[in-house]
Structures are given as C-alpha cells and as structure tokens.
Design a protein around this nucleic acid. Structure first.
Lengths: 223, 223, 223, 223
DNA sequence: GATGAATGAGCCTTCATTCAT
DNA sequence: GATGAATGAAGGCTCATTCAT
C-alpha cells in the first residue's frame, strides 16, 4: 500500500522511467479510466490521456488491450490480497480478532477508495462473460473464503453459537461484497465508518458475545 | 412469471407481430445477449441474431442502441418491482410475514434467473459511469429500501430486539444484492434454496424469535 | 399551369385517387422535400410524410427512388417548357415582343416559386455527375437556346445593333439562370420585380432601342 | 495558382506528411470526388480511394464527414477570394481596369477548373438547405458584391453611362455565376476564352466606351 | 390500392493495432 | 523508448426496397 498505489504524477516521472514504473502508471490510469468512463467506454486513448502519454505507448508495454485489462485486474486483486494477508498477520491469534481484522481491512483506505470500488464493480459486470476474469481471481477468492470459514467455524465453537459456521462465513463474505457494490450503484455513498458499522451489525447478530455493531468487544476487567 | 417473461419463441411469432410483442421479444434477446456476451460486447447484430431477426429491425423499434438498453433496464426494473409489490400485497399483514415474503420474492423464478442476474450485474457495472441508469432505478430502490426499513423497525419493536432497525434493514438489503452478485462472479452457482438460506441465516441472527435459517418461524401451539 | 401545379391537399384527396393524381401528389411532395431538405437528404420517408402517405406507397407508383427523382425533374422541365411555349404563342409576332415574353415568363408565379427554384438548383448540383439529368433536359434546353438565338439575331438585324446575336442570346440565357441561382444561394431573396429588372437591365444595354430596364419599350405616337 | 492547389500526388507524399499537407491532400480529393460523384454520392471511402489512403485517416484529420465538407468549402472559398483580391491589388487603379481584372480573375486557371466548378455547383445545390454553407460564404460574397458595386458606380460616373451602377453590378455578378453554372449543367463546355467573351459582351453593352466584347479597351493615340 | 413491419446493403464512425520516424 | 500518423475491422445507423396483411 505504499509506492504501488501512489506513483508519482505522470509529468514528474523522469522520461526514462523504468518499465515497471510505466506499467504501474498505465495500470493506475486504467483504473481511473474504468471508474470514470465505465468498462465499455474505456479506450486506450483515454487511458493514455489520463496518464499523459501517447496511446501508442500502451501497446509497447502491454501486448494488447486485453492484456492491459487483465494485468489491471491482477494488480488490484493482488493489492486486495496483500491487504487482508497483512491484516491477518498482524492480528492477534484469536478467531474473533482475526475476523475483526479481516473486516476492517476491507474498509481501509488502500482498497476502499472510489476508483478501486468502481474498477471492481466494472470487472464484476464483465466477469460472467469472461471466464478468464473469474479464473484469475478464483484462487484468491477461494483462499479468502476458506480462511473466513475456518475463522467462523472456530468462533462458533469458541462461542457456542447456534449458527452454522459455514453459513455465517458466507453471510459475512457476501455482505462485504454487497457493501462495496452498494457504494457504487447506490445514490448514497456513505463513509467507511458507516459501511463498517453495517458489516459489524450483521457480525454482532451472528456472534453477539464477541462483537457489537462497533466491532470486536474488548473484554473488560471482569472478562 | 408467466407470459410476461416468456414470450413466444422468435421463430413462432407471426411475421406481423404487434409492436409491443416485437419490442418485448427484442428486450428479452437483449437480456440474453448481455448475459452471454457481457455489456461491453453486446452488439445490435448479436441481439438480432439471438432474436432471429435482422439488425435493422432494432433501429426500427428502438431509435438507438442506447434506447434499447435503457428500455431493457426499465423493463427488468419494472419486472423486479412488480414482483416484490405483488409479494407484499399477498403476504399476511404482519412485519415478519412481510419481510419473509419480500425475501422469498427475491429468489422466485421470475427474477432469480441466470439471465436476469447477469443483466443486473452488467448494468451495475456500468451504472457508475452512466448516471441515467442510477436515476432510472433510484425511485424504485428508494421505495424498496423505505418499505424494508419500516418493516424492520416494526419488527424490532414487536420483538424487542436490541439491533437498530435501520441498520438491520440495510444489512438485509445489501445482503440480498450481494447474493445476486455472488451468483454471477462466484465460480460456484448455488441453488435458490441455498441462496435463500444464506439470507435467512442473517435474518435469523437479527430477529431470532421470528426467523430461523429456514425462514419465518411458524408459531407452535405454545407460541 | 393550372391543375397540375395545384393538386388538392393530400388529406382531401379521395382515398381512391386516380393513379395520375397520386403520382402528381408525390411529385409535388418531392419538390417540396428537395427544397426543404436538399437533394442529398431527400428520403422516401420524408417525401411520404410530406404527402401524408405511407412510404411504401411510393414504390408502388414509382419503381425506384431514382425513378421518382427522374419523373420529378421531367415534370418541372415540362412545366417550365409549357410555360415559355405558351408565352411565345401568345406574344405578338415580333422579335422584341417575343423576347420580352420569354423573359417575363421566366418570372411568373408558375415557375418562379421558392420550391421550384430550390428543386432546380438541387438538380443542377447533381447534373454534372448524372448524365441522365442533362440528357433529360438537353433537348428542351437546346430548343430554348435556339429560339432565343433566333430571336436575338432577328433583333440585332432589326435594330442594327453592333453586338453579336448569338453572344447576346447566350448572355441572356445565362443571366436568367444566374438570377434563379442567385435567389437560392444568396442571402437576399428579392422579388420577381427586382429579378426581372435585373434581366431587363442587361437586355436594355444590349438592345437599347427596344428595351429599357423596365422591359419592352412601348413605341409612342412618334415611334 | 501554384503550390496551394497542386499538392504533390498522393502516392508521392512521404508517409509521415505533415498534418497540413495531408489535410490539403484530402480536401483536394474531396473536391475531385464531389465533381466526379456529386455531393449526394460523395462518400468517405470514395474520397479516401481518390487520395489513395484509408478512409479511417479522414476521421483522424477531420472529426466528421461534415467537417471535411465544411473545410473543403472554406478552402475553395478562400482560394477564390485570394484570387480576386490578388487580381485587384495588381490591377491599375482605375475603375475599368479593376473591373477588367476582376472578371478575368474569374476565369483564370486557378479557379476556373472543371473540378472547382463542379464543387461550387454541388455546394450551391445544398446551400439552400444548409444555412451553414451560406453563412460561411456570406461575408466573402458581400464583400465581393460591394467592391463590384463601388467599381461599377465609379465607372458609370466616369463614363456618364445611363445605367444604374448598382443594377449593372448585379448583372455582372449574376452573369459570372451563371457562366460557371452553365459550364456544369450545359451539355456544351466551352473554353475560358468563350466564357470570358460572354461576360465581356454584357460588360461592353453596359459600358461601351470602356469595354469591347474582348475586354478592356486600350485607348489609342487619339483617345 | 394502401400500409408499415422487415430486410440488408452501404454509410459514417470508433478504435485497437501497427509502424515509420 | 516514445510518438502519432496510418490502417482496417467492426459497430451503429440510415434508408431504399420488399412483402404480408
């Protein structure tokens, strides 16, 4: 979440920027363009204009437009994965804490930005007719779902909840995606705080002894 | 779920079909095409081929491609609205029963079909960059959200739940959308039953005295 | 210049109008459409709308669009010819009187109308690339030119003018066409009176003893 | 009449011709195509073929076909204006000499070429239904008319002619346009010499002491 | 005769891709 | 590396023509 998502401004890039920096710059421009113009109206010329470069350059760094889009999806997918992996790694080793960390990661300002949300939504819209998009994200998604399920099941056991852990995990996963979608399609964009509260409202209903609508309950002295 | 969504097969339509029947036929073909090819690759020629008609006819019944897409969105939006309105009207006059009806309506075989889901998802992907799409569905969406909130608040009062009714309504609304999205983007399409169970799992967690993961609790003799 | 140019209003035509009346009605609509939309933008649908008929009907009365245009040109060409032939026939049998009649005929309200002028101008614009148009009018034009030349030569002889009769005829013929063109292309449409005065200004310069800028000189008692 | 109207042949233009040269080349091809095919049948593909280039290039240099046609008209209008302005500037400072120069300019081989005449005639045919065409040339036309009138009035005063100077100017202006039109629509194309003699025949009739059918009279030793 | 739905050729336009400079 | 002119395939749209009713 450092340099990769905040490349220098195009005009300040040294003309002989490294290949990777140019690629990143074009990928960022692609994300912005998809958000602004939509997937269907994203043209190489517009991406190039956004980047302040000539459109001919894109075909130098990416063989085809399709490749640019695939690489862009791979980029935000990897960025998303890095985000929640890091959140889990730094979270305390307890199911509730891990779940809390995973949810909060979904709304931090690396991945929960208007342009990222818009790009994701555009890709979702095309995914159905482009198996390659699903394949690309499938492994990540399955791993995410698996970890969420493990955490949920562990939490059910720990808390003695009556809910099915797998079902609960699915509810949480789908709700998180739904919130992202709602940000784009709804007329009312709300803050990350409200979005998170929505997620935790459901989690608190599922796991009331561990969560409140504000998130993980911090045990008091009387635990 | 009868004649409105299943017009006669193109080839069985009399050559001189009425204007409305042809329009409906072309809209259905558009929905199918969007589902099969995605929004970006939906061409008039493909829509015409799907309908078994010439592409020139589309411009005869719809002035432009844009108009065809707009009318298609209006059609499925109206269809969706008719579906839940009818469900509410025929449901018993109690908050829990109404909520149960609204949720079940989301998964009946009029609206919860692969082609409808795919079309919705495609439109969502474009909605961000096309304010007209949001405007078209905005009124319906707001009414749906309002009714869901009223029902949720009434249920909270009736059941003495600790959850915030507005928050609960938002969770349910977003979860329902999320399930639809998950059907399209996920590699694993599950049945309407599993989808509904996912929804009711959350609802049961929010309103446990009225709902179980299988839906509305039917009060036994001892209440 | 009677019924042929003033068919009854379309809506008042009996539904079972004779073929010829329908043809005339469509030809008049074609003239109007060419004037309003230009040759390049004249479509059968627009012609039909102007006539208040369905466009399918045109192909019933005229095999093709090309045929409609050809017949329209033939119609106004014949109308134009009838006009000057009649003028000559009713003029006194003297070169000056005949010339005066021919010139005045060019500006009477049968042929010198905005829609006729516009149609002529449109056909002229296409004539260069459509030899058929030139061929159609060629005979008429040559006959008109021949008569004008004969008249001019006779007048030169009669008046003892120094000008070449053939040259003078060409000047007059071209000037008359130029005035029509000027009506269409110029920003300033002037009246038939001004137009005629322009023509007679030139004729008076060529044949001063017979003509003044107001037309044929009427010999006084002292002749 | 040198480089501006005779760009290098398409096939000899270096592939990376400057933008202006390409634009000029395409405008020339447009003029040729209008002359050969007529306005209504002038397609971008035909223009491109005439230029030996691909049709896609036209939309690269001219945003739309309409823009190409507008720019083409602007080009020949400017070319025409440059031609008579230059003629006036180099003519002796006397009304008769100026008039002589203006008339001769109309028939020199920069502007009096078959393709130019055809293009003008095509534009005239469309001008009536396209106000933009009239607007574009209006200023030039009015200036030309004004100068012609001033010259004519001065000549009337100088020569003591009985004709109205304004009327005479109109006759000349319209006759010049008529001659151009006659070149296109007539079956008989005559040479620039015959055309000019036609014009001077009228001018000589109007201003006999200054002009003969061959043009400006050169005063002999006895005046 | 008359209508208007239906067809399909041909147009303008967009845009991914190539390539000379 | 970088630019932008040039190409050509493909899409949307128009409209003359056909034809069932």
């Amino acid at each position: 979440m450092d340099k990769t998502v905040q490349p220098k401004k195009p005009e300040t890039l040294p003309r002989k920027a490294s290949r990777d920096a140019r690629r990143l710059q074009l990928i960022e421009s692609t994300i912005l363009t998809i958000g602004r113009c939509g997937y269907a109206k994203t043209t190489l010329t517009e991406v190039a204009n956004t980047a302040g470069l000539s459109h001919g350059l894109i075909n130098f760094h990416f063989k085809t437009k399709e490749q640019l889009l695939v690489d862009t999806l791979l980029f935000i997918a990897q960025e998303y994965r890095d985000n929640w992996v890091k959140a889990i790694e730094t979270a305390p080793d307890a199911p509730a804490a891990r779940l809390d960390a995973m949810i909060r990661a979904d709304f931090n300002d690396v991945v929960f930005t208007p342009d990222r949300l818009a790009a994701w939504c555009a890709f979702w819209g095309e995914a159905q007719s482009r198996p390659i998009y699903q394949e690309m994200c499938g492994a990540n998604d399955r791993e995410y779902a698996r970890i969420l399920e493990e955490t949920s099941v562990a939490l059910v056991n720990e808390g003695g909840y009556g809910v099915d852990g797998i079902d609960a995990a699915r509810v949480i996963r789908i709700l998180l995606e739904g919130i992202w979608l709602d940000q784009i399609t709804g007329n009312n964009r709300y803050s990350a705080e409200v979005a998170m509260r929505t997620a935790f409202t459901a989690v608190a209903a599922l796991f009331p002894r561990h969560f409140s609508p504000d998130g993980l309950r911090v045990p008091g002295p009387a635990g």
